[in-house]
Amino acid sequence: MTTAVTDTGLGTIRAGILGGGFMARVHRTAARDAGGEVRAVATRSVAAGRDAADALGASRAEPDAASLFGATDIDVVHVCTPNATHVDLAARALAAGKHVVCEKPLATTAHDARRLADAAAADGLVAAVPFVYRYHPMIREARARIASGDAGELLTLDCSYLQDWMLLPTDDDWRARSDAGGASRAFADIGSHLCDLIEFVTGEHIHSLSARTRRVFAERGGVAVDTEDIAAVLVETSSGALGTLLVSQMAPGRKNALTLELHGSRQALRFEQERPEELWIGGREGSTVLLRDPATASPDSARLQRVPAGHPMGYQDAFNAFIADVYAAIGGARPEGLPTFEDGWRAAVLTEAVLASAADDGRWTEIPE
């Protein structure tokens, strides 16, 4: 079971949400599941804020972000706004003494992400980024098996994150343009999740990479596009393992196909986010599919399993577990595997390396540890 907020000794964690879209709804649901209370919402306008407060079931709408930051009855701010606004809003929330959960990418540059991570550390505030796929129990099971040595030495990786929501030239979104979404779209948006999982599960850093990117349409919805649709990346980890990563938002039929396949010298492990109850374990003499079961899981996996085996858990469950860990950390706990602003900075470093390599015809680029 995840740690409940009421166990922290602080009582109810009081949340404020910036934004009113899909991710705001996910954050709201997770905050309530963790025992928190959504006190206030602020969006781009007063009218939109009132609508969002009603939709999210918040106690009130604040007229703007400054009012939300100044509220004395808010402990944590959830930043669920377009990418280009994250740095300013997260920095102001931290300066106001609030704990922060900021959607990824944490920042559109590694420099800005570093500033935020340093600010949170200096003020002793909890600052987290929703790399929530870490919270699928079978991801924790894969991590435990690698850490125990069951898989052996890591040899190769075959990983991908595929979607199709930008397949057509008429498909458009604010993320397609760098002024709102940042210089990278596909990699920063979903490739960051993939790389975070690779490093989290294997315990190794991506040491170097070679990347190519592709922008399929010059325009979407009649407006020029300046971000990539696809990224193909070769990677080498700190132990020398080699791997391929394919990231695309133009893969027909793939809705949210995040796949991690890791080949060790004794076992291979494969996790598919669209089949989160399973972990494929490959061996020379035969392969098996391990189904989620708290009775037989590793301790770190079992603590996230809130329902018995055979009762499917999914994305919202993973998000709920993430927020429960954030709120427990606010109460002084040290949850295992909580993704922080440091991890957000790491994702920004990798994103910049991918763009730099692609701009230099796939040049191998070393990543700082």
Rank of each mutant, 00 (worst) to 15 (best):
D64A: 09
A65Y: 13
A65L: 06
A65S: 15
A65W: 10
A65F: 12
A66W: 10
S67V: 10
S67W: 12
L68M: 12
D73C: 08
D73H: 09
I74N: 13
I74Q: 14
I74W: 13
I74L: 09
V76N: 15
V77G: 07
H78N: 11
H78I: 08
N83Q: 14
N83R: 14
N83D: 15
A84T: 07
H86P: 01
V87P: 03
V87S: 07
D88Y: 06
D88T: 10
L89V: 05
R92M: 03
R92P: 09
R92I: 03
R92F: 04
R92K: 11
A93P: 13
A93V: 09
A95Q: 14
A95K: 14
G97E: 15
G97D: 15
K98Q: 15
H99K: 14
C102N: 13
E103V: 05
A107P: 00
T108W: 04
T109P: 11
A110G: 12
A110F: 04
D112G: 10
A113N: 09
R114I: 01
R115Q: 12
R115P: 05
A120T: 08
A121Y: 08
A121C: 04
A122L: 12
D123Q: 04
D123K: 06
G124L: 01
L125V: 05
V126A: 03
V126M: 03
V126Y: 01
V129L: 03
P130E: 02
P130N: 03
P130G: 01
Y133N: 06
R134C: 06
R134N: 08
Y135V: 02
H136E: 06
P137C: 04
I139Y: 02
I139V: 14
A142Y: 04
R143C: 04
A144T: 05
A144I: 02
R145V: 00
R145L: 04
S148I: 00
S148F: 00
G149C: 01
G149P: 02
G149Y: 00
G149T: 00
D150L: 06
D150S: 13
D150V: 05
G152W: 00
G152K: 00
E153Y: 00
E153C: 00
E153H: 04
T156N: 11
L157W: 11
L157M: 13
S160Y: 09
Y161R: 08
L162I: 03
P169K: 07
T170C: 02
T170G: 07
T170A: 06
D171L: 02
D171M: 02
D172S: 07
W174E: 08
W174L: 04
A176P: 02
A176K: 10
R177Q: 10
R177C: 02
R177M: 02
A180T: 09
A180W: 11
A180N: 11
G181Y: 09
G181M: 07
A183H: 12
A183V: 05
S184D: 15
S184V: 08
R185G: 10
F187R: 13
F187I: 09
A188G: 12
A188F: 06
D189L: 06
I190W: 11
I190A: 15
G191A: 14
H193P: 14
L194W: 14
C195W: 12
D196Y: 05
D196F: 04
L197V: 14
I198Y: 10
E199F: 07
E199D: 11
E199Q: 14
F200Y: 15
V201H: 02
V201W: 02
T202V: 02
